[in-house]
Design a protein around this nucleic acid. Structure first.
Length: 354
DNA sequence: AACACGGGGGA
DNA sequence: TCCCCAGTGTT
């Protein structure tokens, strides 16, 4: 069977299914394409259009933008978000006035050097405005390529991104760069979407490795959410003859600062020894429990609750600010952390009676 | 609530 | 060089 050429498929699809009437496609000057590409960073087409037209009306060319105050630029940008883009846009306009005689540069490295313009945006501007041959690799194209070539690994990783740039270069045709560049972005935005991609309407389906191996939903590989560290602790449910439970006040800062909590010990330590050392208690461990996980924003805490009965609580004097014995019906009125409340609630049911 | 996003800037 | 951020829309 004949080799499928990505650009051929995409260009043929673009003819009937791509967008051809976007404002920045009408008069493809470098200035207009540049403005569009900056606005389109992290912002969808439908949102951009009214801003784009308003902006162009006020700043129809590069010099009007360069001469404007940053305040005026930001005012027109208001509502689009990511205002760093507007600052860089204005800064770049000034740079172009000073260093390029007011003409938007046509050399790739010069464009790349402007503030707010990276490799992909530089390529997109020159390809769309001048038909120069440059690969682009925005989020849409990354998704298309990751799926088409079944590229594993998070695209933000350098090695993966390097491979993606290589594929992007290899796929880029030598002609019709204006259409191809727009077509790839349109394909990613309307067909090869992050979720619910429309593979049945995709011009690349026949050659798509992810589609062939049913991995469309898994690719691109998502960013590994940084694995939270796991800490472990043992919480002691120490009850006396009356069923009252021992609570400790936590330090004012840190986790559960100032709340009442169950005494905690290192899960690897011997419970009887610790109870004797810390409180002078001879204790009887009733049971050990499988425990459960409580997750904070920055770590998991695996909690093992251990049920303990002590016969001599009255004999032991404690600092009432730090330790209380709390009767079973009384715990609800105390400021408890959620896991501690859960544990106490769970064990209150089976609280031993004297 | 988690995730995605292009480029800048700091480690 | 690599990582993380800012700031907002989408899922």
């Amino acid at each position: 069977m004949a080799q499928l050429i990505v650009s051929d498929q995409v260009l043929a699809w673009f003819k009937n299914h791509g967008r051809h009437d976007l404002p920045w496609q009408q008069e493809r000057t470098l200035y207009r394409v540049w403005l569009a590409e900056i606005m389109l960073q992290q912002t969808q087409v439908a949102t951009v259009i009214p801003y784009y037209q308003k902006f162009l009306k006020h700043f129809p060319d590069l010099s009007s933008l360069a001469l404007a105050s940053l305040d005026d630029v930001l005012t027109l940008w208001a509502g689009l978000g990511y205002y760093t883009r507007a600052r860089n846009l204005h800064k770049a306009a000034v740079v172009i006035q000073q260093q390029h005689g007011g003409c938007f540069p046509e050399n790739f490295d010069d464009v790349l050097a402007l503030p707010g313009i990276g490799r992909s945006t530089a390529g997109a501007i020159l390809a769309q405005a001048l038909g120069q041959r440059h690969a682009i690799l925005d989020g849409n194209v990354k998704r298309v390529l990751c799926r088409y070539f079944a590229i594993e690994g998070w695209p933000g990783k350098k090695a993966v991104e390097k491979q993606l740039w290589r594929e992007a270069e290899a796929c880029t045709p030598h002609e019709r760069l204006v259409d191809y560049t727009q077509a790839m972005m349109d394909l990613g935005a309307t067909i090869c979407k992050r979720s619910s991609p429309k593979c049945s309407a995709c011009p690349l389906q026949a050659g798509c490795e992810a589609y062939a191996t049913q991995r469309v939903a898994e690719l691109p590989t998502r960013k590994t959410k940084k694995v939270l560290p796991v800490k472990t602790t043992r919480m002691l449910i120490i009850t006396d003859e009356s069923g009252a439970v021992m609570l400790e006040k936590r330090p004012p800062t840190g986790i559960w600062g100032g709340l009442w909590s169950l005494p905690e010990i290192d899960p690897d330590e011997n419970i009887e020894n610790v109870c004797m050392q810390r409180w002078g208690y001879s204790v009887q461990v009733i049971e050990d429990n499988p425990g459960f996980r409580h997750t904070f924003s920055h770590y998991h805490l695996d909690i093992t609750p251990s049920r303990i009965i002590v016969g001599n609580s009255a004999n032991c004097v404690q600092d009432a600010d730090k330790v209380i014995w709390c009767a079973s019906g009384e715990t609800q009125s105390r400021a408890l952390s959620a896991p501690v409340a859960r544990i106490i609630d769970q064990y209150a049911q089976s609280s031993p009676k004297t």
